[in-house]
Structures are given as C-alpha cells and as structure tokens.
C-alpha cells in the first residue's frame, strides 16, 4: 500500500506535534490528577494519593457550586445566542440597503481577544465610571453594581458572552441557511404549512447539524470561559460568577494545588464530553442511524 504509507509520512509532522502538545500534556494532567502536589506546601513533592482527589471533588461544595453556576451560564448564554443568532441570520438572508456593511460590523466582536472584551466591559460596568450603570440609573432608576450584586454580575457576564459570540452563531447559521435547497420550503407552503410549522418541521431539522455543531463549539468554549470573567468580576461577588474555569484557575494559581486542579480539569473534560454526547444522541443520532 504505497499511497497509504505516503499518507502516514505526510501526516507524521502533524501527528508528532499533536502528540507532544496535545496527547502528552493530557496524559500528564490525568497522571497528576492522581497525586497531591503543591510545590509551595510543606511537602512540595508529588505524592500519589489514588482516587483521593476524585473523592474530594464529589464533596467539594465550591466545585459543585461552580458547576451549577456554569451550567446556568451556558444555558442562558448559548440559548440566547442561538435564538438571537438565528434571527440575525434570517435578517441577513434578506436584502436590505447596507447589508454587507452591517454584516461586517456585526462580526467585529469575534476578532477581539476575550481579555480585552473583559476589560472593556469592566470599564463599561464599573459603578460611577461605567456608561451602563450611569444610563440605567438615569433612565430607569435602576442601580447596578456588579461588585455587590450577584444577579447583576451574572447577567452582565451572560450579556457579554452573547455580545461576544452571537456573531459566530449567526455566521454558521447563515452558512447553513444559504446551503439549503429552496424546493422543500416551497413545497411546504403548498402543503399548507404556515411559517411556524415550516420552521419547526422543515427549517430546524434541516439546519440541525449546523445548530448542533454550533452548540458544541459554544458549549465547549463557554465551559472553559476564564479570561473575560476573571477580568470582569474575578468570580465574584461571592462565588456567583465562579465558573469551573475560574474555579480551576483559582485552585491552581493562587493556591498552587496542581494535583487537585488537574482532577477538576479531568472531571470537567469528562462532563463536557458527556454533555456533547447527550446532545448528539438526542439531536442527530436517531436520524443518522435510520438514514444510515
């Protein structure tokens, strides 16, 4: 199999790099997760402690809380991004003056680094300096303080994430919508379906693969959101915006709990995979296996 061997040779550089930068560190993290290791503790050695870290995690209220907060964040953010992204995508499917200008403008958030997004939003929301609390107060008499109000902090982060990532959803959905054949939609009109029925019975199932892919990407991204949140609230007030990413970060950097931090990472990875798998199974798999 000449061509096969050539294929492997051509792939070798990539595979080598992947191995050293992807697989090895991953194995190392799994390895570390079975140890207690804090270089600044009384005993800085790496000590094997079996499944202790994993046992600890189950009763770690801070961790469980962070999972809860993250799930809530992911749910609100991704759902809003999907709905808003779909509406925008439909709007961009139509022709209107200045369309390409708006489409370009609306993707700008995507090219901003999360750390900058975090800083900008911090500027905008800091009480007494920020433009948002100022106008909320002036127009609606609402006082907003993300430093003291858990609700304000959490909501701001959700809105920030929506602002930052909806364009990605819009773009993938536009791509999906553009590639749809027109006939089933015309046929559905003739078959007597109204707009709502067409959406649920035709559009949604036909763009489902793209929707699921987008949700995967956003889900994985949202689950490891750290920098924006770190910049904006530092996980507070209290632990109201202490997402798992932030939790791991705090565990590993200020506390230098490398072993336990690794354990949380492994568990979070596991949870992510399970979430994606569930999503895949419920949304796409039944169809794929039947369409086979």
């Amino acid at each position: 199999m000449q061509s096969n061997r050539l294929g492997w040779i051509l792939l070798a550089p990539t595979l080598t790099i992947l191995f050293f930068f992807g697989v090895l560190p991953f194995i190392y993290v799994v390895y570390v997760s079975f140890h207690s290791w804090n270089p600044f503790a009384a005993n800085p050695e790496m000590i094997f402690n079996g499944a202790d870290n994993f046992r600890r995690i189950v009763f770690d209220e801070e961790f469980l809380n962070s999972v809860g907060v993250t799930v809530m964040f992911v749910f609100f953010a991704v759902l809003s991004e999907l709905i808003l992204g779909y509406i925008l995508a439909q709007a961009f499917m139509k022709d209107f003056p200045g369309k390409s200008f708006f489409r370009t403008i609306h993707t700008l958030p995507l090219i901003m680094a999360p750390i900058i997004v975090g800083s900008v939003w911090k500027l905008m929301t800091t009480p007494s300096i920020g433009i948002i609390p100022h106008y909320l107060d002036e127009w609606f008499g609402i006082s907003m303080n993300i430093g003291t109000s858990a609700f304000a902090a959490f909501t701001t982060i959700v809105i920030m994430d929506i602002w930052h990532w909806t364009p990605l959803v819009t773009l993938t959905l536009i791509a999906a919508l553009v590639s749809l054949p027109p006939d089933p939609f015309e046929q559905a009109q003739i078959d007597g379906a109204n707009k709502r029925q067409i959406f649920w019975h035709i559009t949604l199932p036909m763009i489902a693969p793209a929707v699921v892919a987008t949700v995967f990407i956003r889900l994985m991204d949202a689950l490891r959101t750290v920098d924006e949140v770190w910049m904006l609230t530092g996980g507070g007030p209290g632990s109201s915006t202490r997402f798992v990413g932030v939790h791991i970060f705090k565990e590993v950097f200020p506390k230098t709990n490398y072993g336990y931090g690794s354990t949380i990472s492994v568990i979070v990875l596991y949870l992510t995979i399970v979430a994606c798998w569930l999503l895949y199974v419920t949304m796409l798999a039944p169809r794929n296996s039947k369409e086979g």
Binding site: D183, P184, A188, I190, G192, A193
Partner: peptide, 30 residues
C-alpha cells in the same frame, strides 16, 4: 397554502429528513 392546490415539482422536492411515510403524511399533518 390557502389556494388548496397540490404540486409535484420537477425536482420532487421531498423533505430529506422525513421518511416516505412522513413525507406523504406532511400535508395532512399540517
């Protein structure tokens, strides 16, 4: 949808994500 007509397209325009049964049943379900 209010003209009460049935149409067969040159390209058939079947719903790719529906079974034959559901394709045929679609107008009735609607």
């Amino acid at each position: 949808k209010e003209r009460d007509i049935a149409m067969v397209f040159q390209s058939y325009a079947l719903y790719p994500h529906k079974t034959v049964y559901d394709n045929i049943a679609f107008p009735l379900k609607m």
